[in-house]
């Protein structure tokens, strides 16, 4: 598989714009844990890819076709969806709490209303899961649900494995390292965590998925 396509596939499968948007209100420490966890998961997935395929009697090009299909479908759906809810900002009923736009001025009645509504989410979590609220939860929130299942989706898993099986460990890990930096670095939120960026990413994901399918079909 072409290395540029391989890197593009990993980055678009993570859906960095959407994930950064969802993580924007999380403390830097938590985001660092999410990023490190993602990189560790990518290492494991990449390392087990070839032995797992051998055990399941699957050739690497065939998995590439499958991963391409998953990536293309995921990215096509991403083109028409955008989740503006912070990862943990949900009411007890599971309904997302509206969030303050990044560019909004933190003054005025609307902002006060927003703060009151978002403030309810941690309270709800504390009521339902006191251990989490006190920081004693296991697994800790940065891992569940922030890393899994929000960041580490099936699309990420199958794409990282397919790229590793076809290109070796270096390419998926290099791409994952770049993704991890974006996840951990709050300074990129305003640039990356925007819907136009996600539209671009999803478009590239559809293209990368299609290329993976065709390239996998004609691969040896």
């Amino acid at each position: 598989m072409n290395r540029i396509v391989a890197v593009l596939a990993v980055v678009t499968a993570v859906d960095v714009a959407q994930r950064v948007r969802q993580l924007r209100d999380r403390p830097p420490g938590e985001r660092a844990v999410v990023a490190a966890g993602f990189l560790a998961a990518a290492v494991v997935l990449a390392a087990v890819a070839t032995p797992l395929l051998d055990a399941l009697d699957i050739s690497a090009p065939n998995l590439q076709i499958g991963a391409g299909v998953v990536l293309a479908v995921y990215s096509a759906v991403a083109l028409v969806r955008w989740d503006d809810t912070p990862a943990l900002a949900r009411t007890a009923s599971g309904r997302p709490v509206p969030i303050r736009p990044l560019e909004a001025e933190p003054t005025g009645e609307a902002t006060k209303q927003y703060d009151r509504r978002v403030g309810a989410a941690p309270a709800e979590r504390a009521r339902q899961n006191p251990a989490a609220a006190s920081g004693r939860a296991f697994p800790p929130e940065p891992l569940v649900p922030l890393l899994f299942p929000i960041v580490l989706t099936p699309a990420v898993g199958v794409v990282v494995m397919a790229v590793a099986a076809r290109n070796g460990l270096l390419v998926p890990l290099a791409a994952s390292a770049g993704v991890a930096i974006a996840l951990a670095w709050p300074a990129v939120d305003g640039v990356v965590g925007r819907r136009p960026v996600r539209l671009l990413s999803a478009t590239l994901g559809v293209v990368a998925g299609a290329v993976m399918v065709v390239d996998g079909a004609f691969a040896v």
């Binding site: 399941l56 699957i58 099936p154 699309a155």
Partner: peptide, 17 residues
């Protein structure tokens, strides 16, 4: 979702060779 995606892939796309 993981079970659905990987199970679907195994059943319809990447059957054992």
């Amino acid at each position: 979702m993981w079970v659905l995606v990987f199970g679907g892939l195994r059943a319809f796309v990447v059957q054992a060779e």
